[in-house]
Write a protein that binds this DNA or RNA. Structure first.
Length: 426
RNA sequence: GGAGAAGUCGCGUAGUUGGUCGAGCGCGCGCGACUGGAAAUCGCGUAAACGUCAAAAGCGUUUCGAGGGUUCGAAUCCCUCCUUCUCCGCCA
């Protein structure tokens, strides 16, 4: 949620800023201002009545002591009380509509972002050189199948399209990646957190995925009266609710967390012919980084997270680039996002392996996550998140970029101690 | 799953024959005194949200797990839900 004060101060300016994100919210903003106005009018009116009620109520014990007749006052107070109750109900309705509208507004894009969608994304850094082969390279699906790393067919047998199985050295390679990531983060001072994979609604609301994207996740509910839970689409959804409704102290910040989880996504309608193999599935593995920071420190934290993701990818020896996303390509909750994209030689262009974002106070306001400063002042924290990293794009890139002429695959040095071998052979 | 107990201000607690309780005390925290400096000690102060206001102060409203109810009036009574603890059962 953004601060409604921003809207009240400069509605036109806010509408303009949203246009960069290709979000056209003039109607919503108009309605918000209308509701806010009538809300404040109602509050003023009703609070005057409540003040009167409180004033009289305080007099009653005294009157009773003095033995005065209170019947008439009680009758008056009863009708006052009824009016107040009616007003409260009306006000609640207005609050509800206002909140719904506010929750639906996306985050404001940072002013320095290029406006518009994907086509305006700006690569800001390149690392390494594109891979060249002096033989006909195979694609990752063939490589993984030939080497017995991934069992695509049985994945489909077990769970349907969009699922695969890591086997043998493939599973060990996957596990090696995750260990390499986690060990690096721990060395950097991040706390490893293992979270539930099934989450309550509030987690999705706080992260900003709900109510808008409720249908993008898998819901679990076996009985009518059972609390609905969803399979987490990313560990961010859990980590960002860790301090929901809490007041942290300034000395607690920054909080730096990482979590490994599988991520479950419906990906409805997003399959493309060129996304074979494990580039897009309903379940993939990811190590997620999340930071809670003081507002003035979030830019610094953002750079740290981008740098960490870049070091992980370059540690594997990949050619990749860092891309500053245009406003409309950032997700709804985020003020800014940088993607890290690697090349999968058999596929066109670059594929995202990490996405680092600053939500600023958007999630903190939704989840009421605050910090008490040394001065005693309380304000919202900033939250940031980034993949560090998702494996499902790394592994295809790894086997393709590291394949040798004989069909075997060289294991990157940093992974060898985890995998136990230097080359994956038939 | 069954039986019982409990959820109060950052933390720990007091507060149930309904009324001057938004709420006492301790710790913590802030400021000050004392000190060469610190500890200890003493004094003062210490919730948030919303509304009013250009802003601050002030004033008002709300909040004692959540929601509803009874009442002129609810931390205190009633109902529903959530959570925690203890015992029993079941189970990886």
């Amino acid at each position: 949620m953004i601060d409604i004060k921003l809207i009240k101060e400069d509605p036109q300016g806010i509408i303009k800023r949203y246009e960069a994100k290709e979000a056209y919210v003039a109607d919503e903003i108009g309605r918000i201002l209308e509701l806010d106005k009538s809300r404040r009018e109602m509050i003023g009116e009703n609070e005057a009545l409540k003040a009167e009620q409180n004033r009289v109520t305080k007099l009653i014990p005294q009157m009773k002591k003095e033995g005065k007749d209170t019947a008439e006052i009680f009758a008056q107070m009863k009708s006052l009380s009824d009016t107040i109750k009616r007003n409260d109900a009306k006000q609640k309705e207005i609050d509800g509509e206002l909140r719904t509208l506010m929750l639906a507004l996306p985050n404001l894009p940072d002013p320095d972002l290029a406006p518009g969608g994907k086509e305006n994304n700006q690569p800001i850094r390149y690392f390494g050189e594109p891979h060249k082969f002096d033989f006909e390279p195979k694609n990752h699906v063939d490589l993984c199948t030939d080497l017995g790393l991934i069992d695509y067919q049985r994945g489909v047998k077990l769970s349907g399209n969009g699922f695969w199985i890591y086997r043998g050295m493939g599973a060990r390679l996957e596990w090696a990646l995750l260990n390499y990531f986690i060990d690096t983060h721990i060395a950097d001072g991040y706390e490893l957190v293992l979270v539930p994979h099934m989450l309550g609604y509030e987690c999705g609301l706080t992260a900003g995925q709900f109510p808008k994207f409720e249908n993008d996740v898998y819901w679990l509910q076996t009985a009518e009266d059972e609390t609905r839970r969803f399979m987490l689409p990313t560990a961010e959804t859990a980590l960002v609710s860790l301090h929901r409704d809490e007041i942290l102290t300034e000395a607690d910040l920054p909080r730096k967390y990482i979590s490994y989880t599988p991520c479950f996504r419906r990906e409805a309608g997003s399959y493309r012919a060129d996304e074979r193999g494990m580039v897009r599935g309903h379940q993939f593995n990811k190590v997620e980084m999340v930071q809670y920071t003081l507002p003035e420190k979030s830019d610094e934290a953002f750079e740290e997270l981008v740098g960490k993701a870049e070091r992980l990818v370059s540690g594997l020896g990949f050619h990749f680039r860092t891309v500053k996303l245009a406003a409309a390509d950032c997700s709804a909750s985020m003020a800014r996002t940088y993607d890290i994209e690697i090349q999968i030689p058999s596929m066109n262009g670059y594929k995202e392996v990490s996405s680092v974002s600053n939500a600023r106070d958007y999630q903190a306001r939704r989840g009421n996550m605050r910090v008490r400063r040394a001065s005693g002042k309380i304000e919202l924290v900033h939250t940031l998140n980034g993949s560090g990293l998702a494996t499902s794009r790394i592994l295809p890139a790894l086997v393709e970029q590291n394949q040798l002429a004989d069909g075997s695959v060289k294991v990157p040095e940093v992974l060898q101690k985890y995998v136990g071998v230097e080359v994956l052979k038939k």
